[in-house]
């Protein structure tokens, strides 16, 4: 893994953007750029220098958890797990869905639902269940394949 730490001024921009889109104002992590505009978050105690020192003697594959993806200049799409990690801070861009919509969504389908355009976080029955992108009429599905349900769920 090519480790590239996000500098503090860039982190500030990211935090401001997250606050604007999702209401997230505190990112107590080292942020690391990963492939395909992905940003990972490391909450561990090692410093940047210590991580780089380790990378010289060990093949590092992954640092921290996948948090979000930079889309173009202005947009940030959270990973499937990021809303669960940051749930107490999320106040905006939440789209509540019902059972039928959830059944479709968690199996990887887009769902027809009116919402503000842009990246949104879906919430079902009190749980954040991933992020999608809305065009105003439809939310496009970004549930990773290995996190999709394969069978009919029992009622909650």
């Amino acid at each position: 893994m090519n480790i590239s730490f996000i500098k503090s001024n860039q982190k500030k921009e990211i935090t401001e953007k997250l606050k604007e889109i999702y209401g997230i104002s505190n990112l107590p992590y080292l942020l690391i750029e990963s492939g395909k505009e992905k940003i990972r978050a490391f909450s561990g105690s090692l410093s940047k220098e210590e991580i780089l020192e380790i990378s010289e003697i060990a093949k590092i594959e992954v640092v921290g958890g996948y948090l979000m993806r930079q889309e173009g200049v202005d947009d940030l799409r959270l990973s499937f797990d990021a809303p669960l990690i940051l749930q107490e801070q999320i106040t905006k861009a939440i789209v509540e869905i019902d059972k039928d919509q959830f059944e479709l969504w968690i199996r990887g389908n887009d769902i027809e639902i009116k919402a503000e355009k842009g990246n949104v976080i879906l919430k079902y029955n009190g749980d954040f269940v991933g992020c999608g992108k809305s065009n105003g009429l439809k939310i496009f599905n970004y549930v990773p394949k290995d996190r999709r349900l394969k069978t009919t769920i029992k009622s909650q």
Binding site: L46, I54, V62, D81, L84, I85
Partner: peptide
């Protein structure tokens, strides 16, 4: 490593460094 990384992700682990050695 792929399975390990996927499980750490799913569990919401953010203090991990995964190495392949």
């Amino acid at each position: 490593i792929a399975i390990l990384a996927s499980n750490l992700e799913k569990a919401g682990v953010t203090n991990g460094i995964v190495t392949r050695n």
